[in-house]
């Protein structure tokens, strides 16, 4: 797929941003009894890089992203990514009553861009992501891959320099997923956002990230950090799997 850079210069400044830093993050959710979800999370995701988090289901990864995005307060510790953060939820979260273009424009609207400009920017972003013919479609009339691409376009248009992606491709088939990997790699190469990518797919983490953080079961802690060796994806994958095993996350 050929991605053309069509954003206007004023749309997104060259991302400068900010490491993502989390230290000693603790959080309990629910009332009776409270469930310890974050059990002292420490991590750093360097600016401009893709950092992946893998961990067992239900260990608290989405909760951690919410805390980093400032959507929920921590009980203890800090989670800081600057104010310049966009969070993309786990399931595709396009608003069903808006057409694709309106959904994508939302990213820019919520960053304060006037409606007309946002619309134009959305049109260009859709072209860029190969969705030009579907601007007027409602989300339910799109395939899962197209919806995720739309959600990425919206995140892109938010102009934020830090992206928190919560299992963005989890619901896609293998073929569409690898296609989306190429899309994301290209967006990252062109825009340089700091990306924290939650995934349950080790191969995906290794394929996209510069380093993989391994989370243990709930209450969540980062138990291991594996730098990705681009020349030895298989070896990196094995190292991640071993770390998950050691954490008791997989049999």
């Amino acid at each position: 797929m050929n991605l053309l850079w069509v954003m206007p210069a004023k749309g997104v400044d060259v991302p400068h941003g900010h490491d993502i830093r989390v230290s000693g993050a603790r959080l309990a959710l629910g009332d009776d009894p409270p469930v310890d979800v974050l059990g002292g999370v420490d991590l750093r995701a360097p600016v401009g890089e893709v950092t992946a988090i893998v961990g067992p289901s239900g260990c608290g990864k989405s909760t951690l992203l919410d805390a980093i995005a400032g959507l929920i307060p921590l009980d203890a510790g800090t989670a800081d990514a600057g104010h310049d953060v966009a969070l993309m939820p786990q399931r595709d979260a396009l608003l069903p009553w808006l057409c694709l273009e309106e959904n994508v424009a939302l990213g820019a609207r919520l960053s304060g861009m006037p409606a007309r400009d946002a619309r134009d920017a959305a049109t260009r972003a859709l072209q860029r992501l190969g969705l030009a013919g579907f601007a007027r479609h409602y989300p339910h009339a799109l395939s899962g891959g197209m919806r995720q691409r739309g959600a990425l376009a919206r995140t892109l248009l938010s102009g934020r320099s830090t992206w928190l992606l919560d299992e963005p491709f989890g619901a896609l088939d293998a073929l569409t997923r690898s296609e989306m990997h190429a899309v994301l790699r290209q967006l990252h190469a062109q825009e340089g956002p700091t990306i924290l990518l939650v995934t349950h797919d080790i191969a995906e983490a290794v394929a996209l990230a510069a380093r993989v953080l391994v989370a243990g079961p709930r209450p969540m802690r980062i138990v291991h950090q594996v730098p990705v060796d681009p020349d030895d994806a298989a070896g990196t994958g094995r190292a991640v799997l071993d770390a998950l095993r050691a954490a008791g996350a997989v049999a």
């Binding site: 995005a69 959507l71 969070l87 939820p89 608003l95 939302l106 990213g107 995140t155």
Partner: peptide, 9 residues
Amino acid sequence: LVRAARGLG
């Protein structure tokens, strides 16, 4: 849906 909107500010 709420998370998507809040996550965009």
